[in-house]
Amino acid sequence: MLKTDNTSRNLCIAFVLLLLVGLILPNWLAFLTTIALAKAMVVVGLVMLMRAGLVSFGQGLYYCLGGYTVGIAGQHLGITDAVGILFVSAFIAGCLAALLGLLLCRYREIFFAMLTLAFSMILYGVLVKTSELGSTDGFNVAKVTLLGWQPSPGQLSLVVYSLACLVAFLTAFFMHRYYQSGMGFAGEAVRENEIRVEYLGVSPQRVVFIKYVLAAMLAAVGGSITAMIAGHVDPEMAYWTTSGEFVFVALLGGTGHVVAAFIGAFLFEVIRTIAFDLAPYTWQMILGTTLLLVIFFLPKGLWSLLKAKKVGGNNV
């Protein structure tokens, strides 16, 4: 009855491969991969919410918060340890999400989407007007250290890349198990029928709340990694188009499997980079068209393609 699930093993392999490949990747590709991994963290959280039937149009709030945490910690507080900052930013995001979550867990569908969007726009509005933090331009973040060691500028991107791989691996590993757990299925149950969930003695609000907080923490970690590799943060990270991009990526990959978010994020970065190179004036158009095509032809995302192939392969 139980199908064997090789995901955990495959994830370990992928992790080791990514680390090894990191040694020979050209700079731009390592950068692109790090960004993709960072964004995938946000998307994984978003996918978790989407599996519960909720689309947040405001994950940029926590993405930005995570980024600014790195910046402020390094620039103003002198804290530069990469791992430590990740924990701090996840913690801060978790606290804020717990506060907002109390309210948000009562909302569904469009109202959830719009309210999350509103909160991220509030942060954007505040940052844009805060000259101490560089207003619209943002500011450069201090170079991170690792357990007291200061990597040289040449090493820094490899360090952040490896850290991103590690964090992404851990996220994927535990989120995969999470999807299969009681709490994971509770999300789908909430999406499918809240009344039944109530009558099974569980509070749908609580389920949503927990997921929202977790998603926020993941988004913050993603934002922190982005800030570390880009060396810069600006309010754009909280702007609604950034959040929209995350939703786009989630849709592109699909919600069927935790790895889908990573594939989606990587493809998105590739499409964007290529589109931006080939057609600097029409890259958004290319993205928009891709989005529409995915919605129309692959409503369950690219993952459905992979899955269909796998099933077909087994039958032969």
Binding site: M1, F174, R177, S181, G182, M183, G184, V202
Partner: peptide, 11 residues
């Protein structure tokens, strides 16, 4: 409590 890591589909 609903677990977050233990698989729901255990034997």
């Amino acid at each position: 409590r609903l677990g977050m890591q233990a698989p729901m589909k255990s034997q």
